Amino acid sequence: MIRIAIANQKGGVGKTTTAINMATALAATGSRVLLVDLDPQGNASTGLGVDQAARVRSSYELLTGDASVAEAVIATKVPRLDLIAATVDLSGAEIELIDFDNRTHRLDTALAEAPAGRWDICLIDCPPSLGLLTVNALVAAQSLLVPLQCEFFALEGLSQLLTTIERVRARFNPELRILGIALTMYDRRNRLSEQVSQDVRATLGPVVFQTVIPRNVRLSEAPSHGVPALIYDYRCAGSEAYMALARELIARLPKIAASTGVAA
Protein backbone atom coordinates (compact mmCIF):
# COMPACT_ATOMS: atom_id res chain seq x y z
CA MET A 1 0.00 0.00 0.00
CA ILE A 2 1.45 3.33 -1.08
CA ARG A 3 1.17 5.92 1.69
CA ILE A 4 0.97 9.63 0.88
CA ALA A 5 0.79 12.35 3.53
CA ILE A 6 -0.99 15.57 2.57
CA ALA A 7 0.56 18.25 4.73
CA ASN A 8 1.12 21.96 5.14
CA GLN A 9 1.37 23.56 8.56
CA LYS A 10 -0.39 26.68 7.28
CA GLY A 11 -4.17 26.53 7.60
CA GLY A 12 -6.61 27.48 4.89
CA VAL A 13 -4.56 26.27 1.93
CA GLY A 14 -7.07 23.71 0.66
CA LYS A 15 -5.38 20.74 2.28
CA THR A 16 -8.51 18.87 3.34
CA THR A 17 -10.30 19.75 0.10
CA THR A 18 -7.32 18.26 -1.71
CA ALA A 19 -7.35 15.14 0.47
CA ILE A 20 -11.06 14.49 -0.09
CA ASN A 21 -11.07 15.11 -3.82
CA MET A 22 -7.78 13.39 -4.58
CA ALA A 23 -9.00 10.33 -2.67
CA THR A 24 -12.21 10.40 -4.70
CA ALA A 25 -10.38 10.92 -7.99
CA LEU A 26 -8.01 8.04 -7.28
CA ALA A 27 -10.94 5.80 -6.35
CA ALA A 28 -12.67 6.80 -9.59
CA THR A 29 -9.66 5.55 -11.55
CA GLY A 30 -10.07 2.11 -9.95
CA SER A 31 -7.66 2.31 -7.01
CA ARG A 32 -8.79 1.11 -3.60
CA VAL A 33 -8.16 4.09 -1.35
CA LEU A 34 -7.91 4.53 2.41
CA LEU A 35 -8.13 8.10 3.71
CA VAL A 36 -6.86 8.66 7.26
CA ASP A 37 -8.23 11.84 8.87
CA LEU A 38 -5.51 12.94 11.28
CA ASP A 39 -6.87 16.46 11.84
CA PRO A 40 -8.75 16.98 15.17
CA GLN A 41 -11.19 19.24 13.33
CA GLY A 42 -12.37 16.18 11.42
CA ASN A 43 -13.21 18.15 8.29
CA ALA A 44 -12.27 15.34 5.92
CA SER A 45 -14.67 13.04 7.78
CA THR A 46 -17.46 15.62 7.66
CA GLY A 47 -16.76 16.36 4.00
CA LEU A 48 -17.30 12.69 3.19
CA GLY A 49 -20.65 12.66 4.97
CA VAL A 50 -19.58 10.69 8.06
CA ASP A 51 -21.40 12.15 11.06
CA GLN A 52 -20.16 12.09 14.64
CA ALA A 53 -22.36 9.16 15.67
CA ALA A 54 -20.67 6.93 13.10
CA ARG A 55 -17.17 7.68 14.42
CA VAL A 56 -17.16 4.97 17.09
CA ARG A 57 -13.51 4.15 16.45
CA SER A 58 -11.27 6.85 15.03
CA SER A 59 -7.70 7.82 14.28
CA TYR A 60 -7.33 8.64 18.00
CA GLU A 61 -7.89 5.00 18.96
CA LEU A 62 -5.59 4.01 16.12
CA LEU A 63 -2.73 6.06 17.58
CA THR A 64 -3.31 4.96 21.16
CA GLY A 65 -3.50 1.29 20.16
CA ASP A 66 -7.11 0.86 21.26
CA ALA A 67 -8.24 -0.01 17.73
CA SER A 68 -6.70 -1.55 14.64
CA VAL A 69 -7.11 -0.25 11.10
CA ALA A 70 -9.64 -2.99 10.39
CA GLU A 71 -11.67 -2.00 13.47
CA ALA A 72 -11.58 1.76 12.81
CA VAL A 73 -12.26 1.85 9.08
CA ILE A 74 -15.59 3.16 7.76
CA ALA A 75 -16.97 2.69 4.26
CA THR A 76 -17.92 5.99 2.58
CA LYS A 77 -20.52 6.83 -0.05
CA VAL A 78 -17.73 6.82 -2.64
CA PRO A 79 -17.07 3.37 -4.14
CA ARG A 80 -13.58 2.01 -3.32
CA LEU A 81 -12.95 4.81 -0.79
CA ASP A 82 -12.73 3.96 2.92
CA LEU A 83 -12.10 6.32 5.81
CA ILE A 84 -10.57 6.32 9.26
CA ALA A 85 -12.39 9.27 10.77
CA ALA A 86 -11.20 11.87 13.28
CA THR A 87 -12.90 13.02 16.46
CA VAL A 88 -12.25 15.84 18.92
CA ASP A 89 -10.39 13.35 21.13
CA LEU A 90 -7.51 13.69 18.70
CA SER A 91 -6.88 17.24 19.94
CA GLY A 92 -5.35 15.85 23.13
CA ALA A 93 -3.40 13.09 21.44
CA GLU A 94 -0.17 15.06 21.08
CA ILE A 95 0.07 15.46 24.86
CA GLU A 96 -0.97 11.87 25.59
CA LEU A 97 1.44 10.37 23.07
CA ILE A 98 4.42 11.89 24.87
CA ASP A 99 4.21 9.03 27.38
CA PHE A 100 3.98 6.31 24.71
CA ASP A 101 6.88 4.24 23.45
CA ASN A 102 7.81 5.01 19.83
CA ARG A 103 5.42 7.96 19.88
CA THR A 104 6.56 9.12 16.43
CA HIS A 105 5.87 5.70 14.87
CA ARG A 106 2.36 5.00 16.19
CA LEU A 107 0.62 5.55 12.85
CA ASP A 108 3.32 3.70 10.92
CA THR A 109 2.94 0.67 13.17
CA ALA A 110 -0.85 0.70 12.89
CA LEU A 111 -0.85 0.96 9.09
CA ALA A 112 1.75 -1.81 8.82
CA GLU A 113 -0.82 -4.10 10.44
CA ALA A 114 -3.60 -3.21 7.99
CA PRO A 115 -5.17 -6.13 6.10
CA ALA A 116 -2.78 -7.10 3.31
CA GLY A 117 -3.95 -6.20 -0.18
CA ARG A 118 -7.12 -4.41 0.91
CA TRP A 119 -6.06 -0.94 -0.29
CA ASP A 120 -3.73 0.29 -3.00
CA ILE A 121 -3.18 3.82 -1.73
CA CYS A 122 -3.44 5.46 1.69
CA LEU A 123 -3.82 9.25 1.91
CA ILE A 124 -3.21 10.90 5.28
CA ASP A 125 -4.84 14.29 5.90
CA CYS A 126 -2.62 16.13 8.39
CA PRO A 127 -3.54 18.95 10.79
CA PRO A 128 -2.35 22.52 10.07
CA SER A 129 0.67 22.25 12.35
CA LEU A 130 4.08 20.60 12.58
CA GLY A 131 3.35 18.79 15.83
CA LEU A 132 3.43 15.12 16.77
CA LEU A 133 0.39 14.20 14.66
CA THR A 134 2.01 15.53 11.49
CA VAL A 135 5.33 13.91 12.40
CA ASN A 136 3.49 10.58 12.77
CA ALA A 137 2.10 11.05 9.27
CA LEU A 138 5.51 11.92 7.81
CA VAL A 139 7.09 8.90 9.49
CA ALA A 140 4.33 6.61 8.18
CA ALA A 141 4.35 7.97 4.62
CA GLN A 142 6.63 7.15 1.72
CA SER A 143 5.83 10.41 -0.02
CA LEU A 144 4.36 13.83 0.59
CA LEU A 145 1.85 15.95 -1.30
CA VAL A 146 1.95 19.63 -0.35
CA PRO A 147 -1.01 21.89 -1.19
CA LEU A 148 0.29 25.45 -1.49
CA GLN A 149 -1.99 28.46 -1.63
CA CYS A 150 -1.07 31.02 -4.25
CA GLU A 151 -0.38 33.80 -1.74
CA PHE A 152 2.83 35.40 -0.49
CA PHE A 153 2.79 34.06 3.09
CA ALA A 154 2.42 30.51 1.78
CA LEU A 155 6.03 30.65 0.60
CA GLU A 156 7.24 31.37 4.14
CA GLY A 157 5.35 28.38 5.47
CA LEU A 158 6.76 26.14 2.76
CA SER A 159 10.32 26.78 3.91
CA GLN A 160 9.39 25.73 7.45
CA LEU A 161 7.75 22.56 6.14
CA LEU A 162 10.80 21.67 4.05
CA THR A 163 12.99 22.06 7.14
CA THR A 164 10.73 19.70 9.08
CA ILE A 165 10.84 17.17 6.25
CA GLU A 166 14.63 17.17 6.33
CA ARG A 167 14.60 16.57 10.08
CA VAL A 168 12.15 13.68 9.74
CA ARG A 169 14.32 12.18 6.98
CA ALA A 170 17.43 12.48 9.10
CA ARG A 171 15.96 11.01 12.28
CA PHE A 172 13.06 8.73 11.39
CA ASN A 173 12.25 8.18 7.72
CA PRO A 174 15.10 8.51 5.19
CA GLU A 175 12.79 7.21 2.42
CA LEU A 176 10.39 10.16 2.66
CA ARG A 177 10.15 12.02 -0.66
CA ILE A 178 8.13 14.98 -1.88
CA LEU A 179 5.75 13.60 -4.47
CA GLY A 180 4.68 17.04 -5.57
CA ILE A 181 3.50 20.51 -4.66
CA ALA A 182 -0.02 21.42 -5.76
CA LEU A 183 -0.84 25.08 -6.24
CA THR A 184 -4.31 25.78 -4.83
CA MET A 185 -6.81 28.67 -4.69
CA TYR A 186 -5.40 30.08 -7.91
CA ASP A 187 -7.20 33.23 -9.01
CA ARG A 188 -6.54 34.13 -12.64
CA ARG A 189 -7.81 37.66 -12.00
CA ASN A 190 -5.14 38.22 -9.36
CA ARG A 191 -1.59 39.03 -10.50
CA LEU A 192 -0.24 37.80 -7.17
CA SER A 193 -1.46 34.25 -7.89
CA GLU A 194 0.52 34.18 -11.11
CA GLN A 195 3.58 35.72 -9.44
CA VAL A 196 3.55 33.14 -6.62
CA SER A 197 3.09 30.37 -9.18
CA GLN A 198 6.09 31.57 -11.17
CA ASP A 199 8.25 31.99 -8.05
CA VAL A 200 7.45 28.50 -6.76
CA ARG A 201 8.14 26.90 -10.15
CA ALA A 202 11.39 28.84 -10.54
CA THR A 203 12.53 27.70 -7.09
CA LEU A 204 11.35 24.09 -7.03
CA GLY A 205 11.09 23.21 -10.70
CA PRO A 206 9.39 19.99 -11.80
CA VAL A 207 8.38 18.98 -8.27
CA VAL A 208 5.49 21.46 -8.72
CA PHE A 209 2.49 19.88 -10.48
CA GLN A 210 1.48 21.51 -13.77
CA THR A 211 -2.17 21.42 -12.75
CA VAL A 212 -3.35 24.32 -10.60
CA ILE A 213 -6.50 24.22 -8.48
CA PRO A 214 -8.60 27.34 -9.06
CA ARG A 215 -10.74 29.21 -6.57
CA ASN A 216 -14.12 27.65 -7.16
CA VAL A 217 -17.39 28.09 -5.30
CA ARG A 218 -18.42 24.46 -5.92
CA LEU A 219 -15.35 23.24 -4.03
CA SER A 220 -16.48 25.35 -1.07
CA GLU A 221 -20.11 24.24 -1.25
CA ALA A 222 -19.55 20.49 -1.52
CA PRO A 223 -18.51 19.79 2.14
CA SER A 224 -21.79 21.21 3.45
CA HIS A 225 -23.56 18.49 1.45
CA GLY A 226 -21.29 15.75 2.80
CA VAL A 227 -19.90 14.75 -0.59
CA PRO A 228 -16.68 15.48 -2.51
CA ALA A 229 -16.86 18.16 -5.19
CA LEU A 230 -16.26 15.46 -7.80
CA ILE A 231 -19.65 14.01 -6.87
CA TYR A 232 -21.39 17.29 -6.05
CA ASP A 233 -20.53 18.78 -9.45
CA TYR A 234 -18.07 16.77 -11.51
CA ARG A 235 -18.18 19.29 -14.35
CA CYS A 236 -17.12 22.33 -12.32
CA ALA A 237 -13.65 23.80 -12.82
CA GLY A 238 -12.47 22.58 -9.40
CA SER A 239 -13.50 18.97 -10.04
CA GLU A 240 -11.88 18.95 -13.48
CA ALA A 241 -8.67 20.32 -11.95
CA TYR A 242 -8.55 17.62 -9.27
CA MET A 243 -9.07 14.91 -11.87
CA ALA A 244 -6.17 16.36 -13.87
CA LEU A 245 -4.06 16.51 -10.70
CA ALA A 246 -4.87 12.88 -9.95
CA ARG A 247 -3.64 11.88 -13.41
CA GLU A 248 -0.38 13.72 -12.78
CA LEU A 249 -0.01 12.09 -9.38
CA ILE A 250 -0.62 8.61 -10.79
CA ALA A 251 2.08 9.23 -13.41
CA ARG A 252 4.56 9.93 -10.62
CA LEU A 253 3.65 6.97 -8.42
CA PRO A 254 5.76 4.34 -10.24
CA LYS A 255 8.85 6.45 -9.56
CA ILE A 256 7.98 6.56 -5.87
CA ALA A 257 7.25 2.85 -5.88
CA ALA A 258 10.57 2.04 -7.53
CA SER A 259 12.50 4.02 -4.92
CA THR A 260 10.70 2.51 -1.94
CA GLY A 261 10.16 -1.03 -3.12
CA VAL A 262 6.38 -0.64 -2.94
CA ALA A 263 4.31 -2.08 -5.76
CA ALA A 264 2.29 0.55 -7.57
Rank of each mutant, 00 (worst) to 15 (best):
C122V: 15
L155M: 15
C236N: 12
A85Y: 06
G205C: 11
L62I: 01
D120I: 03
I121R: 04
V33H: 10
D39P: 11
M22L: 15
P223I: 08
T29L: 14
I250F: 02
Y232P: 03
S159V: 06
T87C: 08
V207A: 11
S193W: 00
L81S: 05
Y232S: 06
C126L: 04
R103P: 12
V168E: 04
H225C: 12
F152N: 01
L63I: 11
H225G: 05
L130K: 12
A229W: 07
D89Y: 00
V33I: 15
T104Y: 12
L148S: 02
R201V: 13
A202S: 15
E156C: 01
Q142N: 12
L90V: 07
P128N: 09
L90W: 06
A75N: 09
I178M: 14
A44Q: 13
V227F: 06
A237V: 08
S159Q: 11
L145W: 07
C122R: 04
P228S: 04
E221W: 12
Y234A: 15
G180A: 12
E71K: 00
I74K: 05
L62S: 01
A141D: 07
A141M: 04
P228L: 02
A70W: 02
C126Y: 06
A67V: 02
D39R: 07
V135H: 06
V168T: 08
E166S: 14
P127G: 08
A202N: 14
V56A: 10
D233Q: 08
A7T: 10
L35R: 03
P115F: 07
C126D: 03
A85V: 08
A23C: 05
L83V: 13
R32F: 02
A25D: 08
R3K: 14
V69P: 03
G117Y: 05
V212M: 13
G238N: 05
I121S: 10
L38T: 09
R55Y: 01
A244W: 02
V56M: 12
T109K: 14
P79H: 10
R215P: 06
A137I: 09
G261Q: 13
Y60A: 12
R252N: 10
A28G: 13
P128S: 07
L204T: 11
E221G: 11
A202E: 14
V69H: 02
E151A: 00
K15Y: 02
L148A: 10
V139I: 09
Y242F: 15
L192W: 00
L204G: 07
G261H: 09
E71N: 01
D37Q: 01
H105T: 13
A86W: 06
G14L: 01
T211V: 13
S45F: 00
C126N: 10
A7W: 04
T163A: 14
E96A: 15
R118Q: 15
Q210F: 04
R191F: 02
A54H: 10
S193C: 04
L230P: 11
